[in-house]
Write a protein that binds this DNA or RNA. Structure first.
Lengths: 177, 177
DNA sequence: AGCATATATGTGTCAATGCACATATGAATT
DNA sequence: AATTCATATGTGCATTGACACATATATGCT
């Protein structure tokens, strides 16, 4: 169970509603985890039951009321306990690479198109990372609490650059085959 | 549903039993997908029901009999159909990166230790990839049916090298914090 | 004699995930 | 006037995945 911890991590940044969290998971720092809103709402209730978060109803006019969740001291302790558990190696799990293994059995035109689309997606993602880095970490020395976020961002940048280079090479070698 | 396709891809290489497939998924080319043996056995039965694989019982003395599965023409067609479907962007989904986001709330000694362990794991994996490349693709020009496997391998090598460099940089910056 | 290991195939179960659907409101667009 | 969009929260269901447990046999180790 790691979604619960990912949510707790998000809530260390600031209190958020389920709706906020869903957007946060969609766009922001959480490139390395994803969740749909039903998952998040369910998980928030579970976390509330465990005492790791508290919720406060925020009355709004015009829009439906929000339930804003904050991490509790018990939640922070749970994060620290979790942080001592060993982490698993993430695996790649990519349809594209599976298809490449059976290159003689797939539709090569479709494959080339998929790689081109993938390349575009990685370039787009890289652009987003660069943008975040520029607006958030433009000055040389990040605050200590931001260091981890910067390093995560740097991993993302390197990761996308690696994929981009690989896609370009693959496309060249697939030309005319 | 992609495990079924990953299995079909494996069976294009050679007919295999469930046991073989489980080992294949554990060690060999399938770095980018994983499956446990109960999953594989169940999936094989489903694939048999769909007519995508056929099984032949192989009588063995001493050991239990094996059921060796082969991909059928219908299975090859299913692979081709699947290869035309768009692929999703894989996401990273890494506990370690989640923890980095909340660096002020985690146990830093544990984190450093986890990164060191991760670094060792990536080096180990890189060694395996290099080994496979050397024994299987030592001569310059791979056969057309192996080109995809080589490119997958190259992605794996680049991927591991990227992680290794990142881990080393992170460990340096985390020293003394 | 007992135990671990490798081969080989399964069942049963629960957690995690994903996706469609459901509901409510106000603002902006067509 | 009708539709779409953004805000906001949920339920229900099917699939996927992970993991413990179950069974059977032969070999090799202690």
């Amino acid at each position: 169970m790691a979604l619960s911890h990912a949510i707790l991590v998000c809530l260390t940044e600031r209190p958020m509603s389920g709706y906020d969290l869903a957007k946060f998971f969609d766009t922001s720092i959480a490139f390395f985890w994803k969740a749909t809103h039903p998952q998040i709402y369910r998980e928030l209730k579970k976390l509330g039951g465990q005492g790791y978060v508290t919720s406060a109803e925020e009355v709004q006019s015009g829009k439906p009321n929000r339930f804003v969740y904050s991490i509790t001291d018990a939640g922070k302790q749970a994060l620290k306990d979790w942080s001592r558990e060993p982490v698993a190696l993430p695996l790649i799990k990519d349809d594209l690479l599976v298809r490449l293994q059976a290159i003689e059995y797939v539709d090569k035109d479709a494959l080339r198109e998929q790689i081109r689309a993938r390349l575009a997606a990685h370039r787009e993602q890289l652009g987003q990372y660069h943008h975040i880095r520029d607006v958030r970490f433009s000055d040389g020395k990040p605050a200590p609490e931001d260091l981890g976020k910067l390093m995560g961002l740097e991993l993302g940048i390197q990761y996308e650059q690696g994929w981009i280079a690989w896609c370009e090479g693959v496309l060249q070698r697939l030309e005319g085959t």
